[in-house]
Design a protein around this nucleic acid. Sequence first.
DNA 1: CTGAAAGCGCTTACAG
DNA 2: CTGAAAGCGCTTACAG
Lengths: 353, 353
Amino acid sequence: MKDNVLIGVKEIARQANVSIGTVDRVIHDRTGVAEVTRKKILAIMKELDYQPNILARRLASKKVLRFATLIPAVSSETEFWEAPLKGIQQAEAEIKQFGIVIDKYFYNQNDKQSFVDQSKKILKTNVDGVLVAPIFIEESLAFSKLCNLAKIPQVFINSDIPNESRLSYIGPDLFQSGHLSAHIVNYLVAKHDKILIVNISKEIDSYHHLLRKEKGFISYFEGHEKEVQIIKTDITPETDYASISIKLRVVLAEHTDVKVIFVTNSRVFSVAQFLEKNGLSHIRLVGYDFLTESIAYLKKGIIDFLICQKPQEQGHKGIMTLYQNLVLNTEIEATYYMPIDIITKENYKSYRN
Amino acid sequence: MKDNVLIGVKEIARQANVSIGTVDRVIHDRTGVAEVTRKKILAIMKELDYQPNILARRLASKKVLRFATLIPAVSSETEFWEAPLKGIQQAEAEIKQFGIVIDKYFYNQNDKQSFVDQSKKILKTNVDGVLVAPIFIEESLAFSKLCNLAKIPQVFINSDIPNESRLSYIGPDLFQSGHLSAHIVNYLVAKHDKILIVNISKEIDSYHHLLRKEKGFISYFEGHEKEVQIIKTDITPETDYASISIKLRVVLAEHTDVKVIFVTNSRVFSVAQFLEKNGLSHIRLVGYDFLTESIAYLKKGIIDFLICQKPQEQGHKGIMTLYQNLVLNTEIEATYYMPIDIITKENYKSYRN
DNA sequence: CTGAAAGCGCTTACAG
DNA sequence: CTGAAAGCGCTTACAG
């Protein structure tokens, strides 16, 4: 008659003939419980299919959970990292009432050392989970190893690193996004047309990510009936407008018949600026990311398409993934590819990052 | 010294020199509190910028919140409504530990009466919030009015209804999505090409939504340099494959030079089937929604593009909106347009509803 | 190794 | 109109 009256730890304690303190100990795998008792309690928990009440747990526990985020600072060059930060802040607002605190660290994406410095800082605090944008491959890998030693789960966003021990990657499938860009470009070209791929990057490490997109792009046209001609140019390490301008001028002087330019990252707005200034707006232009400057060129028709992968949602989902893992104890997908969104003059207004 | 030791209702009670029971009464706007007391407590709450602890509230309150959802049943004609339902279930799993129960009601989208019947059922239960897909305009409006009388907040998904008193609309901007489709089609046509718009709908009410898309589409080409010729055909009320086939055969016999077909809803797969069977796959085809059948035609290249608006997220976000309003007491956006996603052969694999 | 008690910030009867 | 007490399902010292 009284069987189902009790619930949770109390019911377990009753059935096991122990106090709820002891039940709590085995739930949290703490030491100081006789092996027999532990086994008995575990069995009962299993039979009852015990699910802890998260509300009660967070309310009773004074302990706050600390998450750290490590992403590039918003730079004068690109506002791209504003969006993930916004997503992080949004998630923070949603879960702060559950006792979660988020410490935000930023590095300079043109300076590896700043990444190393910041990551060291994080490890000095006692942090329960980290969200990282691992732009620098080796340094990120080193950081990841240290986290794993300290049993700190890591979520990567924006770009992945071959690393089996991260909790999850949330971001684009770079190869596929290049492939899709090519599909769109395919609508813009005729047989034998010439296409220019432009990689703009200061740091050689991020260049690696651009190459993935480039490969996806090129693969689309391999053996394709249109038999387009693809040429490419890399603009590095100087990426100010003057440097870009000089380089493009040379390339386009040599190849006067370029029909489409594909820029593998958000720096597409610099190329747009160049085309506009030099009266070359008949050249079709495709690039990446939802930046204010790029949108302006999209409106004007200088940029035809932008590929975007929900940077804000990446930040938001990254934090929520840590939350789900650490608080709710949910299963986490090791890889979560963001949808590849195509932004045009027509739909940018309703676009949600 | 002891000032900040207390928190929440206790601190308010202390400052107001009353018991926490009384504080609770004014927080929840219950009767039976002297006006002076109420004012005093309100003032203190304001000064302290009191934010209730949701965890404690939900834990202490035995009351469950009931949400009801009213959407079309998945039909043999289209699996479209599977996705919103999935989103609803996903949200349910996330918030059920907060004491929220979701009752799911379904109507037949070809039968107004079934909508009326189900909505009546809902009103007989004591429900705290509803999520509705208001396909039938008048019936939905009537239901909405009754909800408002009973102070039940409503969230609309998938299509909106002129109605100032709903809590929120979450779904596509129909006009814009038609406009965007036209922009894409623009890449597929040459000057003076002929475009066929196809509306397929059993119920005249949902036809209204299709018209919005049609208008957006046509508006794009008004005064456009390409001077395309746009014709249209409505297939109603019979929408089985045979009926569609007969109608299309007639139209395409008369207009043998149609270059592109734009189908204003998910029934694009029926048109694809027709084109394939009749060796007309050279005609470009654009339509709506991420259905298994349509994706198959997308893969084959019979369908060129699909416009999709995250039906699953609509369901998910719809429930979460009720949750935010009723539990967290957050400000809610009255209109939340879903992004307009363009699905192609290249990106459908990573598409998230 | 284990238990009893206090407490997290609220809500809910109940008593007056 | 108001207060005191019990309780939601946990966690956290503390005592033994």
